[in-house]
Structure formats: structure tokens, C-alpha cells
Simulated assay, not measured.
Amino acid sequence: MHHLKENPWKINSEKVIYDNKWIGLTEYDVTNPSGNPGIYGKVHMKNKAIGALPLDEEMNTYLVGQYRFTLNQYSWEMPEGGGDFDVPPLESAKRELLEETGLKAKYWTEIQQMHLSNSVTDEHAIIFLARGLEQFEAEPEDTEQLIIKKIPFAQVYRMVCNGEITDSMTVAAVLRVQLLILENKLP
């Protein structure tokens, strides 16, 4: 497989359209790889996307239910959120797990890194598997109205396969963990 080492896009100019503490939107005047003029918009994420899939000794996981403003619908997903670029991803994952579920984990394994919607955003995700769970008090942010469900992992896997769970990080994490189970490599 041949990989281009140089960017075939030429940026002629750029203009910041929108900027806040979470995202920036830049419009680029470009010459595309075919040599034609055009525009390209890029959403720059100001944090890493961090996910933590908790899995207890009985093979249960914990899903977080919340209404997602951007989708205008309810979503079931693993605990996830933003991680500051200056904070190690694992520390952000520990914070998200405790904040959203009240869980702390003794054992952490990074299981996936991925780019989310790479045609319009530079968002980078890091996903961890959390094991050796202990229950504490959840500490949700004031923007979060969460419902927590403890569900057998096999049922969550079926929910992913049936399209009941559509959050991309959760889908990737569940499929990765299922593969680890099938290969007998679950940490």
C-alpha cells in the first residue's frame, strides 16, 4: 500500500470562523489534490477525547445515559469526556470514571486510540479498560444529567451489534474488549 508522505493539499489562506474554550472552527481557502480551488472547514478540538470502559469481575460494565444536545437524542455510552492536553490521558480517564459513575479502578489498560470524524475534525480519542472496581460517590458536572446502568458485558455487546449504542468511542471499546475476550487476552 502506497502512502503519501507530503500533504497534497495547498493552503492559500485561513480564517478563524469561531473559537471558544472547547472548539475552534477554521475555514481554509485551498487548492485540492486535483489542483482545483476550494474551501475546507476544520473543527479543532481543544481537548483529547477520553473514554473508560469499566469491567467488573462478574463481566458487568457500566453505561452512562444522557441526552446529547448535538444529536437531539438520548445516548447510552461508556464514561467519557475531555482530557486537557497537559494532563496525562490516564489521569483524565480516572477523573471521568469517578465523575460519571463513582467508580475507581485498580487496573488500567489502554486499549484503543482513534481519530473521530477525521473528515471535519482533528479530535483524537484514547480509550482505557478499567478493572478492579470500587464504588464511591459520583461527581457529575453541572452540565450532566446522567443515569448509570450496570449491565452484563455480553448484553452491551449485543446492544452495539443491534445498533442500540451508536457512540463511536463506546462501539470501538466494546468491540475491542470482545476481541480481547475471544482471543483470551483480557487483562
Rank of each mutant, 00 (worst) to 15 (best):
Met1His: 00
His3Val: 02
His3Met: 00
Glu6Cys: 00
Lys10Arg: 06
Asn12Pro: 00
Asn12Ile: 05
Asn12Phe: 00
Glu14Trp: 01
Glu14Arg: 10
Glu14Asn: 00
Glu14Thr: 02
Val16Gln: 08
Ile17Gln: 04
Asp19Gln: 14
Asp19Arg: 15
Asp19Ser: 13
Asp19Ala: 10
Ile23His: 01
Leu25His: 09
Thr26Ala: 06
Thr26Phe: 02
Val30Cys: 11
Thr31Glu: 13
Asn32Gln: 08
Pro33Phe: 13
Asn36Tyr: 07
Gly38Asn: 03
Ile39Gly: 12
Val43Phe: 12
Met45Leu: 10
Met45Pro: 01
Met45Ala: 14
Ala49Arg: 07
Leu53Lys: 04
Leu55Arg: 03
Asp56His: 08
Glu57Ser: 10
Glu58Arg: 05
Glu58Met: 02
Met59Gly: 00
Met59Trp: 05
Met59Asp: 03
Asn60Arg: 07
Thr61Gln: 05
Tyr62Thr: 03
Leu63Cys: 10
Val64Asp: 05
Gly65Asp: 05
Gln66Arg: 13
Tyr67Thr: 08
Phe69Gly: 04
Thr70Asn: 10
Thr70Val: 08
Gln73Gly: 00
Tyr74Ile: 05
Ser75Arg: 06
Trp76Ala: 02
Trp76Asn: 03
Pro79Arg: 06
Gly81His: 03
Gly81Tyr: 03
Gly81Asn: 07
Gly82Ile: 01
Gly82Ala: 08
Asp84Lys: 12
Asp84Ala: 12
Phe85Tyr: 15
Pro89Thr: 07
Leu90Cys: 06
Leu90Pro: 01
Ser92Cys: 09
Ala93Met: 05
Lys94Ala: 05
Arg95Ala: 04
Arg95Met: 09
Leu97Lys: 06
Leu97Val: 03
Leu98Gly: 04
Leu98Phe: 04
Glu99Asp: 10
Leu103Pro: 01
Lys104Ala: 02
Tyr107Asp: 12
Tyr107Gln: 12
Trp108Ile: 02
Glu110Asn: 01
Glu110Lys: 11
Met114Tyr: 02
His115Gly: 04
Leu116Arg: 08
Asn118Trp: 06
Asn118Leu: 03
Thr121Ser: 14
Glu123Ile: 12
His124Met: 12
His124Thr: 08
Leu133Asn: 11
Leu133Asp: 12
Glu134Phe: 10
Gln135Leu: 15
Glu137Ala: 14
Glu137His: 15
Glu137Cys: 08
Ala138Phe: 14
Pro140Arg: 14
Pro140Phe: 15
Glu141Arg: 15
Glu141Trp: 14
Glu144Thr: 14
Glu144Cys: 10
Glu144Asp: 15
Ile148Ala: 10
Ile148Asp: 09
Lys149Ala: 15
Pro152Gly: 08
Pro152Tyr: 08
Pro152Val: 07
Phe153Leu: 14
Phe153Met: 12
Phe153Val: 13
Gln155Pro: 01
Val156Gln: 12
Tyr157Leu: 15
Met159Ser: 09
Met159Trp: 14
Val160His: 11
Gly163Arg: 11
Gly163Ser: 11
Glu164Ala: 03
Glu164Gly: 03
Ile165Cys: 12
Ile165Gly: 07
Ala173Val: 11
Ala173Phe: 05
Ala173Arg: 11
Ala173Leu: 06
Leu175Ile: 06
Leu175Glu: 13
Arg176Val: 06
Arg176Tyr: 05
Val177Ile: 15
Val177Glu: 07
Leu180Pro: 01
Ile181Asn: 03
Leu182Gln: 07
Pro187His: 07
